[in-house]
């Protein structure tokens, strides 16, 4: 397996790090998407009743994004610190 990866210029360690970093961002993004979907649909419902709540709805929809940012931070740490 390692030989195969090395043939295309990627070592096993680098490949695993890549998968790990991808999982860190990807899973966090799924969580964020799920939360934003639920908040967004509720937010649109609120906006039809009270359009002046736009600012608050943007704020509430944006809150779960911290999850994916933390996922990004973990991915970056995996690549920078472990990737050498």
């Amino acid at each position: 397996m390692e030989g195969g990866l090395t043939e295309i210029g990627i070592g096993l360690k680098a490949g695993l790090l890549g998968i790990g970093a991808g999982l860190a961002v990807g899973l966090a993004a799924i969580g964020t998407g799920y939360a934003q979907g639920r908040i967004g649909s509720a937010g649109i419902g609120a906006l039809t009743e009270k359009p002046e709540l736009l600012g608050r709805v943007i704020l509430l929809v944006a809150i779960p994004e911290t999850l994916v940012i933390l996922g990004f931070a973990v991915a970056a740490m995996v690549i920078i610190l472990l990737g050498g």
């Binding site: 943007i58 704020l59 944006a62 994004e65």
Partner: peptide, 10 residues
């Protein structure tokens, strides 16, 4: 735009 606003609001 949205992220800059979010950083301010939150």
């Amino acid at each position: 735009t949205v992220q800059a606003l979010r950083l301010h609001y939150v």
